[in-house]
């Protein structure tokens, strides 16, 4: 039995470090904000132009002029700031943001990521994802280990159009925490509670490196 989406977010939150500026993508990454460890101060950046993004507003306090990149109504924390898209991406490309967490359709064992387009289907666009993955020093992917058809999303080579090349550093799935070494492949760091190394091996299509005893994740 693998992790729930909320548990994936909780495990990623353990990667947060004090003083970091963090950009969270849409979906599971957004949930990371609910699990900030005690004693850790981080500020969330949303690429539409806010640093210091707070939780959703109370009912009746929604402001049409205050949204996140997912177009959801949000609040601003004390100390927050607003800025233009150009300045927002200067922060991102200029590597002033320490961590980017985003979802993916596929990741390859050299760190390529595909998450914006399925040929033949409606294409919604890449939004800020290509700028984020091309520039961020630290990228964590949050996703399910397999797709709806049960096929591995951790591949030797992405089959879908790429969002970025050799950029993913770490992946947290419902089954495992993996580090990406472009030379060696997916390094298995941790297993979800009750999930065996064999199951992770059978559901990972790309190169998987298993070294010694692989511990279970701790929450």
């Amino acid at each position: 039995m693998g992790l729930s989406k909320d548990q994936i977010a909780q495990r990623i939150a353990q990667e947060l470090r004090d003083g970091w500026y963090v950009n969270l993508g849409i979906g599971i990454p957004t949930l990371v904000a609910n699990h900030i460890p005690t004693g850790i101060n981080v500020e969330f950046q949303s690429e539409n132009g806010i640093l210091g993004m707070g939780p959703f507003p109370f009912e009746g306090e929604e402001d049409a002029d205050l949204i996140n990149a997912g177009k959801q109504t949000i609040t601003a924390m004390p100390g927050a700031s607003f800025f233009s898209s150009e300045l927002s991406f200067a922060m991102i490309r200029g590597q002033h943001v320490q961590l980017t967490v985003l979802g993916a359709m596929e990741v390859s064992d050299n760190g390529d990521i595909a998450n914006w387009k399925i040929p033949g289907r409606m294409v919604k666009g890449m939004g800020g994802a290509m700028d984020l993955v091309a520039s961020a020093e630290n990228i964590i992917v949050a996703m399910q280990h397999t797709n709806r058809a049960g096929e591995s999303k951790l591949l030797a080579k992405c089959s879908l159009p790429l969002t970025g090349v050799k950029c993913v550093k770490k992946i947290v799935t419902d089954l495992a925490v993996l580090e990406v070494d472009p030379e060696r492949g997916f390094i298995l760091l941790e297993r979800a509670p009750g999930v065996t190394v064999e199951e992770i091996q059978s559901k990972t299509a790309g190169r998987l490196v298993v070294e010694g005893e692989v511990p279970e994740m701790e929450f």
Binding site: I67, K71, Q72, T73
Partner: peptide, 11 residues
């Protein structure tokens, strides 16, 4: 000033 995704939290 239409809101696209109205998201709120309980009091």
């Amino acid at each position: 000033k239409r809101i696209e995704q109205r998201t709120v939290r309980a009091k």
